[in-house]
Amino acid sequence: MATHQPGNPAPTNVQAKRYLTLRRLDRMKQLVHAGQTLSDAAIEAGFFDQSLSRRFKKAFGLSPSRWCNPSKALDH
Rank of each mutant, 00 (worst) to 15 (best):
K29F: 00
L20R: 15
A34P: 01
N8Y: 12
W67V: 06
L22V: 07
R18S: 11
M28F: 01
L38N: 03
F60W: 06
H33S: 09
R66M: 07
Q50R: 13
F48A: 08
K17C: 04
S65P: 00
K29L: 04
P64T: 05
P11Q: 08
A2F: 11
Y19E: 11
D49A: 08
Q50P: 00
R18T: 15
L20G: 12
A16S: 12
T12D: 09
A41G: 03
V32A: 04
A59S: 11
R54W: 11
Q36I: 00
D75T: 13
K57Y: 07
A73C: 05
F56S: 01
H33A: 08
K72M: 12
R66P: 00
L62H: 13
A42Q: 11
K17D: 07
H76C: 03
D40L: 09
L22Y: 14
L22F: 10
L38P: 00
S63H: 10
L52H: 04
S39C: 02
A16F: 10
S65A: 12
H4N: 10
E44H: 06
N13Y: 06
K17N: 06
A34T: 04
T3M: 11
P9R: 14
S39R: 14
N69F: 08
S63E: 12
P64I: 05
N8T: 12
A45E: 02
G46K: 02
M28C: 14
C68A: 15
D75I: 14
P70Y: 03
R54A: 14
G61K: 03
P11F: 04
L62N: 05
T21N: 10
P70R: 08
A10Q: 13
R55M: 12
F48D: 06
A42F: 03
S71V: 11
R27P: 00
F47E: 01
N8Q: 15
S71K: 15
P70L: 06
F48P: 00
G35N: 03
D49W: 02
L74S: 12
R54Y: 14
A45K: 04
R23Q: 15
G46M: 01
P11N: 03
L74M: 09
H76T: 10
G46R: 06
E44A: 11
S53I: 13
H33I: 07
S51V: 04
R24I: 01
A42D: 05
R55K: 15
F47M: 04
N8C: 09
M1A: 14
F47W: 14
L25N: 03
T3K: 14
A10N: 07
A10Y: 13
Q50V: 11
N13L: 05
P64V: 03
M28H: 04
K58F: 09
A73F: 04
Q30C: 02
Q50S: 13
T37H: 02
G7K: 12
M1R: 08
F47H: 04
A34L: 12
F56E: 06
D75W: 06
R23M: 08
F48C: 07
A41K: 05
D75Y: 05
S51A: 10
P64N: 03
Q36C: 08
P70S: 05
R55W: 10
K17L: 11
G46H: 02
D40H: 07
K29A: 07
Q5H: 15
A42M: 08
K29Y: 01
P9E: 06
K57S: 07
H76W: 07
Q15F: 10
G61I: 04
A41H: 03
P9W: 03
T12R: 15
G61P: 02
